[in-house]
């Protein structure tokens, strides 16, 4: 876990360090934090999908018990 946090931190610094280097990456999006919006949107969709599948799973389990 510590290693992971370290990698995230290091990756942010390295983004700053190579901001002028080619080829172009979405560094602006990273520096102003808009990338977190993208992550939040995707996570919301993922959580929604899993909830849905989970509810279907429970319903099927209920039917299986009743038979």
């Amino acid at each position: 876990m510590n290693k992971l946090i370290l990698i995230v931190i290091v990756s942010f610094f390295s983004t700053l360090a190579f901001a002028q280097a080619e080829p172009q990456m979405a560094d602006v999006m990273r520096s102003n934090g808009k990338i977190y919006d993208v992550v939040a949107v995707c996570l919301t969709i993922l959580v929604g999908l899993f909830l849905y599948v989970f509810i279907i799973d429970r319903k099927i389990s209920k039917i299986e018990k009743n038979k």
Binding site: I7, S14, E22, P23, I35, V38, C42
Partner: peptide
Amino acid sequence: FLLEVPRLD
């Protein structure tokens, strides 16, 4: 989305 990836053309 957040980790660094190789910078390729």
